[in-house]
């Protein structure tokens, strides 16, 4: 597979390490009252779509960026690649 790195252009997937669903960005607040339930959902309950999937890839053999790759799980077509940091900021993650 070829991942079109937003900064570096097309790079072979061999340079990357896969992690999983991009919802891993949405880590719950560990100090909240319902934290155990929230972490259970966060860690164990994932969608497994036949179709568009947003997932985390790490450019380990490159610039060490985490990327959010939007990929069709049926065809492997990649329709979008973002820096995970930008996605995290957009989703309201900060300090």
């Amino acid at each position: 597979m070829i991942i079109n790195h937003p900064l570096l252009g097309p790079r072979d997937a061999q340079e990357f390490t896969y992690l999983g669903d991009a919802t891993l960005i949405d880590r719950p607040d560990g100090m909240a009252d319902a934290a155990p339930e929230a972490f259970h959902d966060y860690l164990h309950l994932r969608d497994n779509p036949a179709g568009t999937h947003r997932e985390l890839w790490y450019h380990e053999g490159g610039d060490r960026s985490w990327l959010v790759v939007t990929r069709d799980t049926r065809t492997h077509e990649i329709t979008r690649v973002d820096l995970a940091r930008d996605v995290a900021l957009q989703r309201g993650r900060g300090a």
Binding site: T17, L19, L24, I25, R27, L56, Y58, E60, R64, S65, W66, L83, A84, R85, V87, A88, L89, R93, G94, A95
Partner: peptide
Amino acid sequence: AGPVYRHLEFARQCLWPGL
């Protein structure tokens, strides 16, 4: 060494990009 570094980058870029 490698997996921990990857994990820290994940925490830095994906969990707490504001730090």
